[in-house]
Design a protein around this nucleic acid. Structure first.
Lengths: 143, 143
DNA sequence: CTAATACATGACTATTTTGTCAAGTATCTG
DNA sequence: CAGATACTTGACAAAATAGTCATGTATTAG
């Protein structure tokens, strides 16, 4: 159960965008510098966020990335779903098949229902936190 | 945010042991067969579980693995901690440093507190489910 | 129109996680 | 004690994830 690099760094990129206001574009270079990441990597992360519809890009001089919605409207849940994929029950069943082509516990699986509940608990929690809450937290507000 | 293979398969191995009663040993071969995994892999998983103190092994003919505690006393939290490591806040900070030697957000990190809360929520949930609950679920009980 | 800026993309490399293998040790049975 | 069973271990191989690079396209400034 761990946070992936994409989730961590992708979220940070979004926060950089959120900080600058939805209107104003921020360049890859700026984000990279502020986060201590390579521009190439930031580009790749933003690619995913763009595809997920969380950000939008503008090319050319004066170009950059910006959020498509207000920070108050972007939940951590949607961020994690865009970047790291909280897997569905079905995906878990398909992923852990051991040597076989399908999981031995295909009927009546106790493990599956436990993971499903855990996923629900996590998503529930994450869907209740928004980028704006994190910006607030940086200024002293405790989650 | 995903469940690792070790967590999934490790848990299943434990459930196989739980099913057979704490007293009776189960061999690697039996578990491997029932779970559709290679004996070598099951062995490795049990190695970790043994190190974590969740299981104990007996060598020789009539040997095998068994739980060190009753299924009612082994929480999913302890299983996940033994196998997959739910990372501590400190570990997250140390892991995601980007290009630098330490994270740029070393003071005043909003992301950190969000992950910390998420971890707390997950552990809280997992610490309330026990192997015995899962065995029950297999027989129709819904978690 | 040309140069400069900045996003876009696919292919590549590196690292981590998964999973396997081979050689070894302990225990029981006859 | 000899042979069979089954755990033990470290090193290796395969697959997935993380991160880089080179080349291309759109937009603006002059």
């Amino acid at each position: 159960m761990k946070i992936t690099a994409q989730e961590e760094y992708g979220l940070r990129c979004l926060l950089q965008l959120a900080k600058n206001g939805v209107e104003n574009g921020v360049t890859v270079k700026e984000i990279a510098q502020k986060e201590g990441l390579s521009p190439a990597y930031v580009e790749k992360l933003l690619r995913h966020l763009n595809q997920a519809g969380l950000t939008q890009s503008v090319r050319g001089t004066k170009g950059g990335y910006h959020l498509t919605r207000k920070p108050e409207e972007i939940s951590l849940g949607s961020v994690v779903r865009a970047l790291g994929k909280v897997p569905s029950t079905q995906e878990i069943c398909d992923r852990f098949t051991g040597n076989l082509t399908s999981c031995v516990h295909i009927n009546d699986c106790c493990v599956r229902s436990a993971w499903a509940s855990l996923t629900r608990v996590m998503e529930n929690f994450l869907d209740g936190i928004f980028l704006s809450d994190l910006l607030g937290a940086e200024k002293g507000f405790k989650i």
